[in-house]
């Protein structure tokens, strides 16, 4: 069992997500940075579907009540196990009673903690990921999370484990969205040349961006499917990037679609970080 002594900004249990239920309005959810969650799982020898802890921003403190092995991947983070420094992307032996402290994140903002065979929480509609609205499952101080006792050194199934390279300055690649062509060439150019800044009102549902708004008038559409990575143009003339907990359909024009790997990159950017877009043509 893991006992939460302190949470930072936000902590939740996530897995790859909840699929097959979008037609009922259920978001796919899942790890914001799927690549880093997969790396943490690989290191402890888990299947990719195992549930992990998503730790957003510094300040978390966790106490382990059993002997086990864990791995952390994602944000570059100062980590301490009791008073000893430990590192991401490696196997860490845990002895019952030890406390993990998540210190400052020098690059990125989401860290994934994988335990042997994953977090043992109940499934909810075929997934352990959070469900927004009345079914929120954010974790708080005092919560206890069931994990498996595992004193043996885990066997890695995949020896080819490459942590993602967090690149905070790199352009985010995006495909043209269904309504991209409704923008004037001038507005398209402006969107692709603007440096936006991630707004403080950003979360697992979506990132609001600040920057130069376009003035072009592009009308709302009839509600139509959207997905993580869909960039909508708000009436203010600024883009909104939908993230993992986003709704299944929406009525704002879909101007761009972020590539899957760059949704992971965006997940490591925090409010105040910059975003530039680069257009990429979709091919098969």
């Amino acid at each position: 069992m893991i006992e939460i002594l302190r949470t930072g900004s936000h902590m939740c249990i996530v897995d790859r997500g909840r699929f097959g239920l979008r037609k009922y309005g259920v978001p796919t959810s899942g790890s914001m940075d799927q690549a880093s969650a997969a790396v943490a799982n690989s290191i402890v020898g888990n299947d990719m579907s195992a549930a992990v802890l998503e730790l957003y921003m510094p300040g978390h403190q966790l106490k382990f009540h059993c002997d086990t092995y864990i791995a952390l991947s994602g944000a570059r983070t100062q980590l301490q196990l009791d008073n000893r420094n430990i590192y991401t992307d490696s196997i860490i032996k845990i002895t019952k009673g030890q406390v993990l402290s998540v210190g400052s994140m020098t690059k990125g903002c989401r860290l994934y903690l994988a335990t042997y065979q994953g977090i043992q929480t109940a499934e909810f509609l075929k997934s352990k990921s959070p469900l927004t609205g009345s079914y929120d499952r954010s974790l708080h101080k005092g919560d206890q999370i069931k994990i498996l006792n595992h004193p043996q050194f885990p066997v890695q199934k995949n020896s080819n484990i490459v942590p993602i390279k967090i690149e905070l300055q790199k352009e985010i690649t995006a495909y043209p969205g269904p309504e991209w062509h409704k923008l004037s060439k001038g507005d398209q150019k402006k969107i692709l040349s603007t440096t936006y800044m991630i707004d403080y009102k950003s979360d697992r549902m979506g990132y609001r961006l600040n920057g130069t708004a376009i003035k072009g008038d592009i009308e709302e559409i009839f509600s139509s499917p959207v997905m993580p990575g869909t960039i909508q143009l708000l009436p203010s003339g600024l883009p909104l990037i939908l993230m993992r907990d986003c709704q299944t359909t929406g009525g704002y024009p879909r101007i761009l679609q972020v590539t899957e790997s760059d949704i992971n990159q965006l997940s490591q950017r925090r409010p105040g970080d910059e975003v530039n877009f680069q257009l990429r043509l979709i091919d098969n």
């Binding site: 097959g20 037609k23 009839f222 509600s223 499917p225």
Partner: peptide, 13 residues
């Protein structure tokens, strides 16, 4: 993997 209908469209994942 899944199909999501809307007013005048449908997304096939």
């Amino acid at each position: 993997t899944e199909m999501v209908p809307a007013y005048h469209s449908a997304m096939i994942y």
